[in-house]
Amino acid sequence: MSLPLNPAMQATDVSPVPEAGRWIAGRTFPADRPLINVSQAAPVAPPPEPLRRAMAEALMQEPASHLYGPDLGLPALRAALSEQVSAQYGGTIRPEQTAITSGCNQAFAAAIATLAGPGDEVLLPIPWYFNHKMWLDMSSIRTVPLPTGPDLLPDPKVAATLIGPRTRAIALVTPNNPAGVEYPPERVAAFAELARSRGLALVVDETYRDFHSRDGAPHPLFEDPDWDETLIRLYSFSKSYRLTGHRVGALMSSPARLAEVEKFIDTVTICPSQIGQRAALLGIQTLGDWLAGERREILARRASIEAGFPKLAEQGWCLKGCGAYFAYVEHPFALSSDALAKALVEEASVLCLPGTMFEPKGATSGRRHLRLAYANIDADGIETLFDRLAGVSFER
């Protein structure tokens, strides 16, 4: 007799990144055509040397780095991040409105856990970030798909028509994962006004904020002194300082909500990584110029995508979105993108994710799109990627 399984967990789709990893498990690729992996949006290079050195010193010399810390994060890091974001956005964020989490995925999970329960609803623009959808499914919270236009931007007027009595929040990701598009400041502000007028939370995931092409604040929401009555802002140190394995993220909201978040964190991880938090703090304090250089490099890769795409456009491909770590492309083939993505491993030694992993099952749009995560390929790698994609031939 087998043990029972949670039906909500069973009904949740498998995570796309490990699923795609199984497509190449045990495979070897030709020496003249090595694998190009554009499936995951995470830096593979280690943190910069000053961070690694400081982390090693903390490991060896700070006994507290091995102990439980405060559930909501190190006070010094909460204060430093609050000050930094206040300066970046021209608003006021206090340390008591800031929590440190074990990565940004935990920040989203904690935020949703304070907002909604089984049977409630959350609006997610499509294409959506798959881990957001997975958490809602596991929590028995209904995801309400929010369609986007040809520019892959959601419309607050459309969102207003989808709000029902069980709706608890609208969740946005900007710069967007998977589409790469940056939501204009006025669009984000319009969503905040909609959420406020309907008594909902607006959850804004800004994991890729440090690679935004816009100079200055990406949105004006923190200028409102009562921002924490509506906005829940999420952030990640993983991409900014290459701390993916150390799991350090952040959540900004009202002190009252953070009291509830504390319960969630204490039950799940007790506290964020002590070593990772120390690295994040040093990054804020000393690596501003280094991070600016990382941003310039990512923006240069974005420019390479846009400059090189005509090679694919000649073959019928379309660049639908590009920014931060991502390009979202429409392919010209009869194959559904889930079959195409697997075929590209064989035909082009390219591993990418299909649009079907970012949209509701059966969605026509998902069958037409691929996500290319270019964080780990430089301009030459992008050119090689486009050469390979331009060279494949399938039925149209």
Rank of each mutant, 00 (worst) to 15 (best):
L74M: 15
S304D: 13
G288C: 03
L335C: 02
N105L: 15
L72Q: 02
S39F: 03
S365C: 11
R27M: 07
V44K: 14
V181A: 03
D338C: 13
R168T: 02
E330R: 14
H369W: 08
S337P: 03
Y325C: 12
Q84L: 14
E19Y: 13
A324S: 10
L59T: 12
E121L: 07
P7V: 02
D120N: 07
P360D: 03
D224G: 04
R52H: 03
L335Y: 04
P47Q: 11
R187C: 12
P218R: 00
D13T: 12
P46C: 10
T230H: 05
L251P: 00
R187G: 13
I305R: 02
A250Y: 03
E314V: 10
P165Y: 06
G69C: 09
D155P: 09
R302G: 04
V181S: 09
P63F: 06
D210A: 15
M134I: 11
N176R: 11
A300S: 13
P154R: 03
R168V: 02
A341H: 00
L281F: 02
N376G: 03
L194S: 01
M60I: 08
A107V: 00
S273E: 05
A327H: 01
R242D: 11
P48L: 12
A195E: 00
G323T: 04
A303H: 06
D338E: 12
A80Y: 03
W317E: 00
L319M: 08
E223V: 13
E346K: 14
G321A: 09
L3M: 14
F394C: 06
R368M: 08
A169H: 01
P218D: 06
P50H: 08
V248K: 02
T98P: 11
P220Q: 05
I126S: 09
S140F: 03
A109L: 12
G117E: 01
A250T: 02
E359Q: 07
P310W: 12
P185E: 03
S336H: 14
S254A: 07
F264H: 12
R196P: 04
E347G: 12
W128M: 11
P43D: 08
Q277N: 07
K263T: 15
Q61P: 08
C104A: 14
L344G: 01
A292K: 13
V122S: 05
A373H: 04
Y208V: 09
R388N: 04
L115S: 06
V203L: 05
D71V: 14
S15P: 07
V261K: 01
V181G: 05
L72P: 07
R396G: 11
G119D: 01
P47C: 10
